[in-house]
Nucleic acid binder design. Structure first.
Length: 265
DNA sequence: GTTCTCGGCCG
DNA sequence: CGGCCGAGAAC
């Protein structure tokens, strides 16, 4: 009974994707197995990088185990956590400069086909340039960011940010936390100005009028006073960073001196 | 030509 | 040790 060579439907993949495991039956590596995936069009994939290239940079396969075809949030994350804590003691940790949004990907790692109907009689979709060109997106996708908090390497949650007065959320979730996530991610991902929801209709019925390229907050005004206050905060933060870097540098040189003393002895 | 298969490199 | 990919074998 050799079932291994059959192309299997994979429950974690969209319909049409197949997974195949082939056992090597001769040679030095006999008994080892190779895993292949087949796209709905029949294209064969024999490695994670190849799959990643095909799917584009928008999909993070970091937690995807190619061999089993399952998402593995536990393994990689656990290792990173342990590593970080170990490295903390020897002061080798580098700051995490990755600005990609840490959105959990539970359902499927692959792009799902989206049907966009644009030929209703008299519809305004195709004349509305912005809606026509933007990527389809979930209306309230920012809700998925709930519960995510900035933390330092000791995993202490950092002080939460206080939102300025005048920022009000739009949508079913009115918590400050979601509002903060929505604005922060908009600032990270959008190259165009963040204005909030400029249509007042969005407040009444966001499910219809929400502009998904803008965060879930009402339109707001930024005053000169706001800008001055923010500049002050940035200057203070830079001073703190400068002090910290200076102290770190001193600590490192002191440590390396101690090390070389040890070796000399 | 394409597809299959195993070797072997490299992290 | 296992993922990944090159390249020869097979078709």
């Amino acid at each position: 009974m050799i079932m291994e060579k059959k192309r299997m439907d994979c429950p974690f993949l969209p319909p049409g994707w197949k997974k195949e495991e082939v056992i090597r039956k001769s040679g030095l590596s006999a008994g080892k197995s190779d895993v292949y995936y087949y796209s709905p069009t029949g294209k064969k994939f024999r490695s994670k990088p190849q799959l990643s290239r095909y799917l584009g940079n928008s999909v993070d396969l970091g937690c995807f185990d190619f061999r089993t075809g399952k998402m593995v949030p536990s393994k990689l994350q656990m290792k990173n956590k342990q590593r970080r804590n170990e490295n903390l003691s020897i002061n080798k940790g580098k700051p995490d400069l990755n600005t990609a949004l840490p959105i959990r990907q539970t359902a499927s790692i692959f792009k799902q086909p989206v049907t966009k109907v644009v030929n209703h009689p008299g519809n305004k979709v195709k004349t509305d340039l912005q809606r026509a060109t933007e990527q389809p997106r979930q209306l309230f996708w920012e809700k998925r960011l709930n519960g995510l908090k900035a933390s330092d390497i000791t995993e202490e949650v950092l002080r939460t940010m206080e939102l300025p007065k005048g920022l009000t959320s739009v949508g079913p979730d009115t918590s400050d936390e979601t509002l903060l996530s929505a604005i922060a991610s908009a600032l990270h991902m959008s190259s165009s100005p963040i204005t909030g929801q400029t249509s007042s209709a969005a407040e009444k019925n966001p499910a219809i009028w929400l502009n998904t390229s803008q965060p879930l907050c009402k339109a707001f005004l930024v005053t000169d006073q706001d800008i001055r206050e923010q500049e002050l905060k940035v200057i203070q933060a830079r001073r703190c960073l400068e002090d910290a870097l200076m102290a770190d540098g001193l600590a490192r040189t002191a440590e390396s001196r101690r090390d070389s003393d040890h070796k000399a002895a």
